[in-house]
Amino acid sequence: NITNLCPFDEVFNATRFASVYAWNRKRISNCVADYSVLYNFAPFFAFKCYGVSPTKLNDLCFTNVYADSFVIRGNEVSQIAPGQTGNIADYNYKLPDDFTGCVIAWNSNKLDSKVGGNYNYLYRLFRKSNLKPFERDISTEIYQAGNKPCNGVAGFNCYFPLRSYGFRPTYGVGHQPYRVVVLSFELLHAPATVCGPKKST
């Protein structure tokens, strides 16, 4: 009989979020998941679920829940969905086509923008091939755009693969920082350890 609540607040209220190319993952297990707390949290810009209804989450049990978190621009949030393409979905964070879970995003301009620009948040701009679902690539190898080998030196046709967002408070909404948490639900042939409040007695 599990009684402790799942530590969703640790994920959602973290002081610093990860850059999207180096997205953070927390495994959540052996706890009671009260999703209504999240669902009623006012400032969400997006709360979209795939393969599961957000209002039914509290009735369900899962083997594991993974909480992935990172920061992207407002106009990139739409790429955090199954079957998407674009710089983020291709080179930074890719969801599987059969994704079961929820994508939760909110504007973090007050936290993550600075006058003069916040350059701490990076994304991958160049990559030889697209990421596989949930693949994480933190390499900083110089990207070779031409035929000539770069030998690890940036220059003509040789690019550092990461780019900084440089968030400023005055940017338009599409270019403002958004914090994103992706909850993915794993249902294995194993005992369920993460259940909603109704199922955990």
Rank of each mutant, 00 (worst) to 15 (best):
N1Y: 06
I2V: 13
I2Q: 13
I2W: 10
T3P: 08
N4E: 12
C6E: 05
P7Y: 05
F8S: 02
F8C: 02
E10C: 05
V11W: 06
N13G: 07
A14S: 08
T15R: 09
T15L: 04
A18W: 03
V20Q: 03
Y21D: 05
W23N: 04
N24T: 14
I28K: 01
I28L: 13
D34P: 04
S36T: 12
V37M: 14
V37H: 10
L38C: 03
L38H: 01
L38F: 07
Y39K: 15
F41A: 08
P43V: 03
F44G: 13
F44K: 12
F45L: 11
F45H: 15
F47C: 06
C49G: 00
C49K: 00
C49R: 00
C49Y: 00
Y50K: 01
Y50F: 08
G51T: 01
V52D: 03
K56T: 10
L57F: 06
L57E: 05
N58A: 11
D59L: 05
L60V: 10
Y66T: 13
A67C: 07
D68Y: 04
S69D: 02
F70K: 02
F70W: 01
V71H: 00
V71A: 04
R73N: 11
G74A: 07
G74I: 01
E76T: 01
E76Y: 00
E76H: 07
V77A: 03
V77T: 06
V77M: 07
Q79V: 00
I80Y: 01
I80M: 02
A81H: 02
A81W: 03
P82A: 01
Q84L: 03
I88L: 04
I88Q: 03
D90A: 08
K94R: 09
K94N: 05
L95K: 01
D97E: 11
T100D: 01
G101A: 00
A105T: 08
A105N: 04
A105P: 00
S108D: 05
N109V: 09
N109I: 06
D112S: 00
D112R: 00
S113K: 03
S113F: 03
V115H: 14
G116D: 14
G116I: 08
G116P: 10
G116S: 11
G117F: 06
G117S: 09
G117Q: 09
N118W: 04
N118S: 12
N120V: 09
Y121D: 04
Y121Q: 09
L122F: 13
Y123D: 05
L125W: 13
F126E: 14
F126T: 14
K128T: 12
S129H: 12
K132D: 09
F134W: 08
D137I: 01
I138C: 12
T140C: 09
A145Q: 13
K148L: 11
P149D: 14
C150M: 05
N151V: 10
N157F: 08
F160E: 15
F160G: 11
P161V: 03
S164E: 10
S164H: 11
Y165P: 05
G166T: 13
R168L: 10
P169A: 08
T170I: 07
Y171N: 14
Y171H: 12
H175V: 07
Q176M: 06
Y178R: 02
V180K: 00
V180P: 00
V181S: 00
V181H: 01
V181F: 02
V181L: 04
V182H: 00
L183V: 05
L183K: 00
L183M: 06
L183T: 00
L183N: 00
S184D: 03
E186M: 02
A190N: 12
T193A: 11
T193F: 08
T193I: 08
C195A: 11
G196Y: 09
K198V: 12
K198F: 13
K199Q: 14
T201E: 15
